[in-house]
Design a binder for these strands. Structure first.
Length: 429
RNA sequence: GGUGGGGUUCCCGAGUGGUCAAAGGGAACAGACUGUAAAUCUGUCGGCAAAGCCUUCGGAGGUUCAAAUCCUCCCCCCACCA
């Protein structure tokens, strides 16, 4: 059970691989290089990229050398695989900017020091490509007949919108990436999402044809929640790894809201906790399940935002929803604090108001909108009308309700929308 | 370039002169039930200090008392032909 492949299989990272036995043999040699591409379509990565990131981290933990390839060049083209519509084209400046942000986030999971891992940008070689030589050297190895039969293009070919030529070239560029990494870095493994299978196979084929060498591919399953939703999608949009976009508290809450049926799977994928402990979770019921979710949320938050932030989020949640001490018997390896500490709540979303503003009086619905608990005044009005608006734990009875000094509770007002969205008003003196 | 079909509120999708803030479904939100879970049931689901008013149906004009619906021009997408 020491081979990276076994570990990845056990934790649920692998959907399929090429050359099963040869791949295991190859990885057994140790210190191998494997790469994954990251699209710089946004400034930040989100939860959807966590599986690739974690697998690179596992690689490193097992003595191999991960290569994170930022798609600075391919990002200018846009991967159509599995997409229903064409991506918006990004400007080179945007791609460059995004690449930096992504690099920062990756380094939380992977140690890039002393060549223990590499971070590369394919713009470095793709932007220099000459069209005619590229067509002659690379393009001639690709059969259009085969390409249009590929599953990843199928959706687009059958759709109304069709497939644009620029996107059709994406596969060639990604195959060329692999060739390049093979030639210059001795990289023989590419990993990626299941939608990348076609692109990965193309790279493998290209290297076989041009270098007569065998290289390998691994794809990850598409992770969905038990209810069928894509990972990391909420009403507010994606759950980002960047604390500017998704606060550690919100991030923590996302994991706490995990479906019961997903806990084991997610602990395996999104934490480094030992598998034998994770398997014990399957036997838990009721309240213990919530403890397991707490561990999941804590560990996942710690990985992305660091221990301090994870503890803050954990404490904030405790102060809102009640303290929950995780028993020693559940996930003993987890570093989640298990003692009754002083639970502060500084991580709960909050904003500051002047005492004067409160004394003047402000309609409750207005305040809910103001602090972002409702997207509009109308929505806030509805919320209150439906009995979903609370002040300091008490349901607001009327849409006319005015917030005043009387609502101050220890210099604070706790607003709540529905069951689990909180916002604290603090008075600035 | 030609011909035909399209662009509707977060998404899908009905609507071809007033009864349209626009059917239906999905998503989402709230309530009940719970465990900050799922399932189920009920309600809400453009904005606005709100029984009223304002802004939306690719864009800009126009016809009309009245336009998502009719006319003109433009932009974009798709299919077939070249």
């Amino acid at each position: 059970m020491n081979n990276l492949i076994d570990i990845l299989y056990e934790r649920g990272f692998i959907e399929k691989t090429t050359h099963d036995d040869e791949l295991v043999e190859y990885i057994d040699q140790g210190n191998i290089k494997g790469y994954i591409g990251f699209d710089p379509t946004a400034l930040s990565l989100h939860i959807g990229s966590l599986v690739p990131i974690m697998s690179l981290a596992h690689m490193q933990k097992h003595g191999h050398r991960p290569i994170a390839l930022i798609g600075g060049g391919t990002g200018l083209v846009g991967d159509p695989s599995g997409k229903t519509e064409m991506r918006k084209l990004l400007t080179p400046e945007m791609v460059e900017h995004n690449a930096r942000g992504i690099e920062k986030q990756l380094s939380r999971f992977i140690d890039f020091s002393k060549g223990k891992a590499l971070i590369l940008n394919n713009a470095d070689w793709l932007s220099e490509l000459k069209y005619i030589p590229f067509l002659r050297d690379i393009g001639r190895h690709f059969s259009v007949n085969r390409m249009i039969k590929a599953e990843s293009y199928k959706m687009r070919l059958e759709s109304e919108e069709g497939l644009n030529f620029i996107e059709f070239n994406y596969t060639l560029l990604q195959a060329y990436d692999f060739l390049n990494l093979f030639d210059n870095y001795g990289c023989r493994l590419q990993m990626g999402g299941s939608d990348q299978w076609g692109n990965i196979i193309s790279g493998i084929g290209l290297i076989r044809k041009m270098r007569q060498e065998t290289v390998f591919g691994i794809t990850f399953p598409l992770i969905t929640t038990s209810s069928g939703a894509k990972m990391g999608k909420t009403a507010e949009g994606a759950v980002w790894l960047d604390s500017e976009r998704t606060s550690p508290y919100e991030y923590y809450q996302y994991w706490i809201n995990t479906d019961d049926n997903d806990i084991v799977r997610f602990l395996a994928l999104y934490t480094f906790l030992p598998m034998d402990e994770i398997k014990d979770i399957e036997r838990l019921e009721d309240d213990d399940l919530n403890s397991a979710k707490t561990v999941l949320a804590f560990e996942a938050t710690q990985l992305v935002h660091g221990r301090q932030e994870a503890i803050k989020a954990y404490h904030a949640a405790a102060s809102m929803f009640g303290v929950r001490i995780v028993p020693e018997r559940i996930m003993p390896t987890s570093s989640i604090p298990r003692d009754e500490a002083d639970f502060d709540d500084i991580s709960v979303p909050h904003s500051f108001f002047d005492l004067k503003q409160i004394q003047t009086g402000i309609p409750a619905f207005k305040l809910f909108h103001l602090v972002g608990l409702a997207p509009s005044g109308s929505a806030a009005m509805r919320l209150i009308r439906q009995g979903g608006g609370y002040i300091n734990g008490n349901r607001i009875s009327s849409t006319e309700y005015m917030i005043s000094e009387n609502d101050l509770n220890n210099k604070e007002i706790l607003l709540r929308a529905g069951k689990k969205r909180f916002h604290k008003i603090k008075i600035r003196y």
